[in-house]
């Protein structure tokens, strides 16, 4: 209906304003480059930046990462500590269900530790 106030009009105006706000600087920069400042690409400028040295070889190489083992073991001990403290504090007031749930949780973590142990991760070489 003509003359009626539409609350969604605000949203439309805001969306248009937001898009214009985001794209106007890009458009201005593009126009400026077209009018005044020519682009000058070159082999050095387009090259991979590496402290002024020419990059050598291929970046897509296999990289043996063994850090994940430390990550897993850290997680085991870290999470265990976080959950064991409230468990110990509230130990006397716990019901049987909560106790079993936490023991199952602990056993899952112990399982991970046992797996790492069997894999020989804990042996210092």
């Amino acid at each position: 209906m003509p003359g009626e106030y539409n609350p969604y009009l605000f949203i439309v105006v805001m969306v248009v304003a937001a898009i214009a706000f985001a794209f106007a600087p890009l458009l201005l920069a593009w126009l400026w480059a077209r009018k005044f400042s020519p682009q000058k690409p070159g082999p050095d400028k387009n090259a991979t930046y590496e402290c002024g040295l020419e990059s050598k070889g291929d970046a897509w190489i296999h990289f043996k990462s063994e850090y994940y083992l430390y990550g897993i073991i850290f997680l085991i001990f870290d999470v265990e500590t976080i959950f064991l403290l409230p468990f110990a504090v509230a130990f006397t007031g716990l019901g049987a269900g909560a106790f079993i749930a936490l023991v199952v949780f602990l056993l899952l973590l112990v399982w991970g530790l046992a797996w790492a142990w069997m894999k020989g991760v804990l042996t210092w070489r």
Partner: peptide, 13 residues
């Protein structure tokens, strides 16, 4: 010197 010149080349105008 080559590294200095290459770094200069890699700077934008």
């Amino acid at each position: 010197a080559p590294q200095v010149v290459r770094l200069y080349n890699q700077m934008p105008e």
